[in-house]
Design a protein around this nucleic acid. Structure first.
Length: 344
RNA sequence: CCGCCCUUAGCUCAGACUGGUAGAGCAGCCGACUGUAGAUCGGCUUGUCCCCCGUUCAAAUCGGGGAGGGCGGACCA
């Protein structure tokens, strides 16, 4: 595979790449490394799944991928996860992540897993962090983390330390590429700004789009109806998709189309399978799509109606999520230990 | 260490001074209208009033204690 092909794999279906020429250079120089971090807070959902799906592209492009389970971060961000639950949630996250990567058609064995507390509790990490704390203003750190860290009336110091820690994680994990949702942009731009001053390389960045919620607007992890959970069964998924905001002909804020574009079609294409829409004869009969683009065109033109698309989308999404749910429910203690209040 | 303020529905809050076991907006749910959903109408639900003790026929409301959160002071003057 040449540099152009590899670069294309890395940059396809992304929101932003900083910068494409830096990615190309990395491929020219050798085997690049990339990392993505997840703070083990609430239960994982389909939004995580789409960023995870993209890791298959990274692996195929020959990149060394590290997944950070950022347990300390989960507590530093307004104590989203109680300190006592960090072990259980880290275990659950790792299992869920492996299941998603496998469901996306990639091999999780090719990925290195690291837990934050494995390296964040001692020098040189701590010393670098203290020095960065000394030279970063409150407002700079606040601005960098504003899209990631929970904003509240009485913000804790932890949120600001969180931001600087994540800026440093890229270097600590020796990653050439920082990958994450576009909400992470502020933090990695801070990385690019301050890491060179500490003897580290500034990372290239790849940002994934954030999915729209099913109820319109941004997806909210706390609103159960606005997203598909990894533990939702086929029927629940069908109900959620059925209730989703999905105006005919409109692509903007359309969560159903986004799920198809970023999750369903990439997974189907691995096996050269197509997407079937069953439609009553009175509306023209069944439709079949080999790629997302023609489906979107049909939707925009009005040829494909939301009422026909929704059941087909629900079935396809359920098929992708099924193995992940099976895996998680196969070890019920994973969820019970991580979320004793809802699964205990 | 001292002082002041806050805690009521999932969320934001009203009600407290002048005790009579609680309300609004938003959210949510259900119908109508759309070949989906949304929007728009119509209807509905929701509560250990932070906890304990006391006064009283009666406490979200008054008194005492406690918990959690916030703000300020105390040194420099």
């Amino acid at each position: 595979m040449d540099t152009a092909e590899r670069t294309n794999l890395v940059t396809r279906f992304t929101e932003e790449v900083v910068t494409e020429s830096e990615i190309e250079s990395l491929f020219e120089e050798g085997t690049p490394s990339a990392y993505i971090g997840y703070a083990p807070t609430g239960e994982m959902h389909i939004g995580h799944f789409t960023t995870m799906r993209k890791l298959a592209d990274f692996l195929e492009a020959g990149i060394e991928v590290t997944v950070l389970v950022a347990d300390l971060h989960a507590h530093l961000d307004d104590e989203k996860s109680p300190f006592e639950l960090l072990d259980a949630r880290s275990t659950y996250y790792r299992t869920a992540i492996e299941a998603m990567i496998e469901a996306a058609g990639a091999n999780p064995d090719g990925i290195e897993f690291v837990r934050g507390t494995e390296y964040q509790l001692e020098a040189p990490y701590t010393l670098d962090l203290y020095r960065m704390l000394a030279e970063t203003t409150l407002s700079r750190a606040q601005r960098a983390g504003s899209e990631v860290v929970r904003q509240s009336e009485n913000p804790k110091l932890g949120g600001l330390v969180y931001t600087l820690m994540q800026s440093l994680d890229v270097a600590a994990l020796d990653a050439d590429i920082a990958y994450g949702g576009i909400d992470q942009r502020g933090i990695y731009m801070l990385s690019r700004e301050i890491l060179p001053g500490h003897g580290y390389q500034k990372p290239a960045c790849v940002f994934a789009p954030l999915l729209s919620g099913l109820s319109g607007g941004k997806m909210s992890a706390s609103e159960d109806e606005s997203k598909v959970n990894l533990t939702d069964d086929d029927e629940t998924i069908a109900e959620k998709i059925q209730g989703a905001y999905c105006p005919a002909g409109e692509v903007a804020d359309n969560g159903v189309l986004e799920y198809l574009r970023y999750l369903v079609f990439p997974v189907l294409s691995q096996d050269n399978r197509s997407f079937l829409v069953e439609r009553p004869e009175k509306y023209g009969g069944n439709l079949e799509y080999e790629a997302y683009e023609p489906l979107e065109e049909a939707f925009v033109s009005g040829e494909l109606h939301p009422a026909d698309l929704k059941p087909a989308a629900a079935a396809a999404i359920a098929e992708v999520v099924d193995p992940v749910r099976e895996r998680l429910l196969d070890e019920p203690e994973l969820l019970a230990d991580a979320y004793p209040e809802t699964h205990g």
